[in-house]
Write a protein that binds this DNA or RNA. Structure first.
Lengths: 170, 170
DNA sequence: TTGTCTGCAAACACTTTGCACTTTT
DNA sequence: AAAAGTGCAAAGTGTTTGCAGACAA
């Protein structure tokens, strides 16, 4: 998913007017952190990328990139964590490893996770949030966010599925 | 998930007629697996236990038990996996490690997770399931189950919270 | 220059596996 | 006796850390 540079739009509640790269630079500067070549490479690469990925995948992709723009495994992990802190990425855990997706300028959403092909389908539901908040209130709990994964089979996998075992992994 | 042989239950609030130990023995026998001392120790201990725990915790508790009833780490892990298969336990991943809770004779539910004190509060909502199924249907997806964790702060932690950083871990 | 960042290698936490021996059936 | 289970030690994952040299500010 590509983020437009210099756009100004609002989705749900989030107001976006900086490119991810700019937003990240701002975040770093605000904390006395430095805008290094590696960090820029990573934000840029991630921003020009499709939805979901994990650290190893990203690392692999960077490896195929011009020599100057590479980053080591530790740097990738460190930078992903910073991007999550900066609100650029959202992290979730699937099958034991962390999966990231864009979270900058995107409305909150949840996922349908196909246990057949590991596909993630996004959806969002205001009603869901309404219920979440109602339940939280009942328990005198202040909800800051949530994570919902609906497991099951997508239409493609529903056909030839009878032998294989479906595991509950999340 | 395997359905019990000879159990008697009704949906909504599940009715159970076998003890966890019996249920597990049945499950094992049905698969030509053996009812060993270790497996019995583990089911019994887990069944007499409170809600949420992880493998290391269980292992630790078993260590304090009469010599004859211990089980090694690999056996604990193997048995927990079997109990999940047998529908006795539910597994979820929090902060990178697997957490188990009872799933036999318990109605389906979700959790409020306090990022302040790591407390888990259970709740359940029929409305939620209704929405889940509606959304799944819209995407021609067959929902088999879901996992919802609402993150936030419990009432106890809401007081002295201003300095510390709350992390999104799930 | 000064202090942060990077990459390497090593350490990590949690979980799984290979294998010889023990136990259930 | 035959087959499956156990424990040990070792190997795996995915991720994090200590540290010396490299580099932004």
């Amino acid at each position: 998913m590509t983020m437009a540079v210099g756009t100004d739009f609002s989705l749900g509640t989030v107001q976006v007017s900086l490119s991810p790269r700019e937003r990240f630079a701002e975040f770093l500067q605000a904390r006395g952190k430095r805008v290094t070549r590696q960090r820029q490479t990573i934000v840029d690469h991630v921003s020009s990328r499709h939805e979901h990925f994990d650290a190893e995948q990203l690392l692999e992709e960077l490896r195929r990139t011009p020599a100057g723009s590479r980053a080591s495994r530790p740097t990738v992990y460190r930078t992903l964590a910073e991007m999550v802190e900066a609100g650029l990425l959202r992290k979730m855990v699937l099958d034991g490893r962390a999966v990231y997706e864009h979270d900058y300028g995107y409305p909150q959403h949840d996922h349908l996770y196909c246990t057949g092909c590991q596909k993630l389908i996004e959806f969002s539901s205001d009603e869901l949030v309404r219920i979440r908040d109602a339940v939280a209130a009942q328990h005198r709990f202040r909800a800051r966010g949530h994570r919902l994964i609906v497991m099951g089979l997508c239409i493609d996998c529903r056909s030839a599925r009878s032998t294989s075992r479906h595991q509950d992994r999340v």
